[in-house]
């Protein structure tokens, strides 16, 4: 595979696995990540995988950038022998509409659908997590039907509660912490996407396959209380 290497800084090197987001470039990112996780060379500080890149942060006192590149090229040469981790399948229950999803009606109107139809389309898709970034545990999710796409709000909300499920353009996502943002809000999940007390503080990981399922408010309350109790 043909990767390009270029510096982000004097202590970080970017490996680009492709120039477009596709299965190949994403698989390569996942394989590189899993190799780095297993091998953890001494000079490695940390790494950040994204759609088509893995950025490797190193200790500049231990190794020169040219040597980091050499070592990473060696690693990349063996990529074909690595099996990509099997995608995990995760279900995200969502209570749609009402106070939790004040923009559900907008998304419906914008697409000439009823609210029920929007929910039906949102829950019938199989989605994949491209990457985690922007906020702790925040998944960039691909695979949404264009039938329920909706533009961002003209003026962003100052506060979007954690656990809110939204739509922006062709993307759907879940807010792990309270954040300002311009997404159209369609519902809320009782799941906690950011779990700082766990070794891996993100519920979701790049490569996960997810489905949304509909729950009512009573189920939402019950699951939320249960999950919060587990972590308090």
């Amino acid at each position: 595979m043909d990767f390009t290497f270029s510096p982000l800084s004097e202590q970080a090197l970017v490996i680009e696995t492709g120039t477009i987001i596709n299965k190949e470039s994403e698989q390569a990112v996942r394989k590189l990540s899993s190799l780095l996780e297993k091998q953890t060379p001494d000079w490695l500080v940390e790494f950040i995988p994204a759609f088509t890149t893995v950025t490797v942060f190193y200790d500049p006192c231990q190794i020169r950038q040219a040597e980091v590149e050499q070592e990473l090229r060696l690693l990349a040469a063996h990529l074909d022998e690595v099996e990509a981790p099997t995608p995990r399948q995760i279900e995200i229950p969502v209570c749609y509409g009402g106070d939790f999803g004040p923009d559900l009606s907008f998304v419906a109107e914008h697409n000439g659908l009823t609210e029920e139809e929007v929910i039906k389309i949102h829950t019938s898709g199989v989605y994949s997590v491209h990457m985690i970034g922007f906020a702790p545990g925040f998944p960039f999710i691909g695979g949404m039907s264009e039938k329920i796409a909706a533009p961002r709000r003209k003026s962003p909300r100052l506060r979007i509660p954690e656990r809110t499920v939204g739509i922006a353009g062709m993307q759907t996502g879940v807010y792990p912490i309270e954040t300002p943002g311009g997404w159209q809000l369609i519902g809320r999940t009782p799941l906690r996407l950011f779990v700082p007390e766990q070794d891996i503080p993100s519920l979701l990981r790049a490569g996960d396959e997810i489905r949304f399922t509909q729950i009512d408010e009573a189920e939402y309350r019950e699951q939320e209380a249960k999950l919060d109790a587990e972590h308090s």
Partner: peptide, 10 residues
């Protein structure tokens, strides 16, 4: 906080 940026933790 080093080592958690890959999970989106700043």
């Amino acid at each position: 906080r080093t080592g958690f940026q890959r999970y989106g933790v700043i």
